[in-house]
Design a protein around this nucleic acid. Sequence first.
RNA 1: GCCUGGGUAGCUCAGUCGGUAGAGCAACGCAUUCGUAAUGCGUAGGUCAAGGGUUCGAAUCCCUUCCCAGGCUCCA
Length: 659
Amino acid sequence: MSEIDVVLPDGSARTLPEGSTALDLAAQIGKRLAKDALCADVNGDLLDLNVALPPGALVSIVTPASARGREVLRHSTAHVLAQAVTRLWPGAHFAIGPSIENGFYYDFALPDDGRFSDDDLERLEAEMRVIVNEDQPFDRSEHTIEEGLELFRDQPFKVEIINAVALGASEEDLTEVASPSVVSAYANSARFVDLCRGPHVPSTARLGHFKLMRVAGAYWRGDEKNQQLQRVYGTAWESAAALDAHLLQLVEAEKRDHRRLAVDLDLLSFPHELGGGLAVWHPKGGIVRKQMEDYSRERHLHGGYQFVVTPHLANERLFETSGHLGFYRDGMYPPMELDNGTYYMKPMNCPMHCLIYKSRPRSYRELPLRLFELGTVYRYERAGTLHGLMRIRGFTQDDSHIYCTADQLQDEIASLLEFVMSVLRAFGFSDFTANLSTKNPAKYVGGHEIWEQSTEALRLALERFGLSYEVKKGDAAFYGPKIDIDVRDAIGRTWQLSTIQCDFNSPERFELEYVGADNQRHRPIMLHRALFGSIERFFGVVLEHYAGNLPTWLCAEQVRVLGVRDDHDAYATAVAASLAAHDVRVSTDVATEPLGSRIRKAKLEKIPYILVVGDDDVAKTTIGVNARGSNDPERGVRLDAFTTRLTLEIADHGSPEDH
RNA sequence: GCCUGGGUAGCUCAGUCGGUAGAGCAACGCAUUCGUAAUGCGUAGGUCAAGGGUUCGAAUCCCUUCCCAGGCUCCA
């Protein structure tokens, strides 16, 4: 019998009998690897373990505790879910079931327009465990288009996918089948076959560390005009420990949910009486927000911006001119009909800023003209999309509109990028990435040249700044290309905060002009930009980033002074007064309750510094300093030394945890 | 807007078969005077989201609306 050589990832070669599979290779390398192996990377393609290796192939064995291994586990678990559904709901149609971050989902159409309820998850999970225990193989087979259509004749979604791929109509469906001409299928048993490109684990027995999480509705092919399918989400891992760790992480993430923290820390609330998506800010939230706004104003003041103020509503003529009524009427609060016309709440500040620009003739000497406003806008977001502060119906943008010439664009954007990141860094973010959204050929206004020129200006500014970015083709708004800036937070989630958008539409619609050095009239380019995006959303992101342990400068209460006994209260009050004289936000909690109880209360409020003063301190003018995040208090600290340290920390935007 | 699940005291939740409202924490009062995450006792607190229906009787069953959660879609 002839032999073949294959190459391992470390560059070493292995010799195997011709016809050997990836599993044979794994077995030759080691018993343990053969036991762990899920599938194999052969010359860059992920394949099942039982395929014969071609001579000279570069092979790596994929094991469960790897990104690709988990992906295969999750996808295979999705097949098990589909089989469980077809067992419990005979006649169910199944659509697609990919692996996703941390797990998988699968979409179904149940017989008689049936719906899953939460109780069904338990039944499904039990059935899935039965399938896992049955140790069913994943048997791959390949078919012609005609055979595939016959094989899945009872599964309309599969038929649609096969046809779409055969016609070359859908690239994304290629993930479901082998190639445009070969239909691949995986059979777990005579009764369950699913269309799939693969690869899969060798047997269902290799699965088991999964949990079904929730049911949801999801539109076929993600289009709300299509049938809504029943989706089941699950999470799946390589081990019980990994699954438990994930579930624990979900619990931890819940603890830093801004909606939870907003209640616990008494920052703000969403009273039912107000209606959905509208918040009231309580005193403590009000202080934090004021700190954010003050900082923003301060930076803009020194950043060459001019402050403007505009009203919350306007006559409909304004929004006809701006085009908002034409394009976004559904997203606006409905009209107020009055004797002298029809009024709308403003969904954006830009039309108002254009009116300010237009209030008198402009010279090229004034450009770039940067108008800034903390402008509150109202958008009637669809009920199902609301999400705490992150998606809200009334919110305040740190909004600016910059009017400039095409020549000024690149410099303006480069300096804007610097400004944006400098401001975001002041709030503790340091990991940024950008997205550059380019023209959607199906939906845009403006000439080819201006799109090219400004997209290039955005791109060059990004490169000049050295910010890593991805190009999102066709993602631009109809009126111009844009840069969005994502930040990564303390637990690795990314949030889109800042946006810099070119607008070729508004200057046209408002007929904005400036007189150039050539004494001719020219049309300026307009930039929309927001750094926080919305103050509400930014507040939510910051709160979650710090899990409520805000840096000292942002905290509503920075210090609380506790006397050990009530005869220390006078000294505690004096300490507080001394700190307050340095603009520290400080309170005292008089000794009617035991010290331990008052300390606990202050810790739950996440106050950066709890100062405890007793006999020693009264005698020596010292304090006991209990810093947030630390379990051993410092005794006998001189008050003036602490005051210096604290005021420095506040000025530096630091936290007690930094020391 | 669509799918699923919810809404009981400020918060977290219990409330069985339809029989008329409960706990812990928080609040308030009194006592306690205490050196680093819960002192004790007591008091008060509810149109059970709102409205309608079924019933002798509804937190509980039905309908409508509002609000919330997780998804889908959307996000100028």
